[in-house]
């Protein structure tokens, strides 16, 4: 109760300060819209459907790219951790490529795929995949080897060991990796949507970019705010429950 109250007070103060600076007249309202202008835009764009459609288009792309990243990243991370040859080859590649900011994939994607959905998907998958591989790999390698020995004495081997020991033992790291993958997917998608203009769907990134071209700062700020809110919601609804569960089971983490 007190904690949610302090959050509310904090954000209200932030908004008030912003409103105050905007009204002071020091800055052109074209460059610094007031929170009220932004809210007005959000209301309008929600009513005429622009925001809904853009959010839906973006989420669809995100889910597809993120899903593919996890689908390939988790198994690849599991096997790079367990086989030295793959660790020294694929693992090293993943470690190198994940340092590449996702926007760097955009020129390549544009030349390979043109202004298409495929280009966008490619950028998101490249932005997600490598970091998921690395996080999964690290999680498996952090597992105490005694678990495997204990499991072997009880008759566990092969796939049973993979699904009943290695996978659950590295789950807390996996969720960390999925969370990081989510953040990377978001970043890559926004980069892609800003640079790739296509007619098959008008996402939040494109809305942001058009806001800049039309000099509609209320639109730019509103879209940014929506991106932040979606990110927060994803963290709270998708990842936090899992993390809380692991902290309770494993007895890790002192933060409430």
């Amino acid at each position: 109760m007190i904690r949610s109250l302090s959050s509310i007070v904090f954000f209200l103060t932030l908004l008030l300060a912003w409103e105050f600076v905007a009204r002071s007249g020091h800055y052109s309202p074209v460059l610094l819209p007031s929170p009220l202008n932004v809210l007005e835009y959000i209301w309008q764009a929600t009513c005429d459907g622009t925001l809904w459609v853009a959010t839906l288009v973006t989420m669809k792309r995100l889910m597809l790219g993120y899903g593919l990243g996890l689908l390939f990243g988790i198994p690849l991370g599991l096997i790079t951790a367990r086989f030295r040859l793959l660790q020294d080859t694929l693992g090293l590649l993943a470690l190198g490529v994940q340092t590449l900011p996702s926007v760097c994939w955009v020129p390549l994607a544009l030349l390979w795929f043109g202004q298409t959905e495929a280009a966008m998907l490619f950028v998101v998958v490249m932005g997600t995949l490598w970091s998921v591989i690395i996080a999964t790999n690290d999680g498996v390698r952090a597992m105490p080897p005694i678990y495997l020995r204990a499991a072997r004495t009880m008759g566990s081997k092969g796939l049973h060991t993979w699904f009943k020991v290695i996978l659950p033992a590295s789950l807390p790291y996996l969720v960390g990796g999925m969370k990081q993958g989510w953040a990377f997917a978001w970043r890559s998608l926004m980069a892609a949507e800003i640079f790739v203009t296509i007619l098959t769907g008008f996402g939040l990134g494109q809305l942001l970019q058009y806001g800049r071209e039309l000099l509609a700062m209320d639109q730019v700020v509103a879209v940014m705010a929506i991106i932040v809110v979606i990110g927060l919601l994803a963290d709270r609804l998708l990842f936090s429950p899992w993390e809380r569960f692991f902290h309770r089971r494993w007895g890790t983490g002192s933060m409430k």
């Binding site: 105490p144 005694i146 678990y147 204990a150 659950p168 033992a169 789950l171 089971r249 494993w250």
Partner: peptide
């Protein structure tokens, strides 16, 4: 084992 080696999950 000396370390209990129980599975925390």
């Amino acid at each position: 084992f000396q370390e209990h080696a129980l599975f925390p999950w």
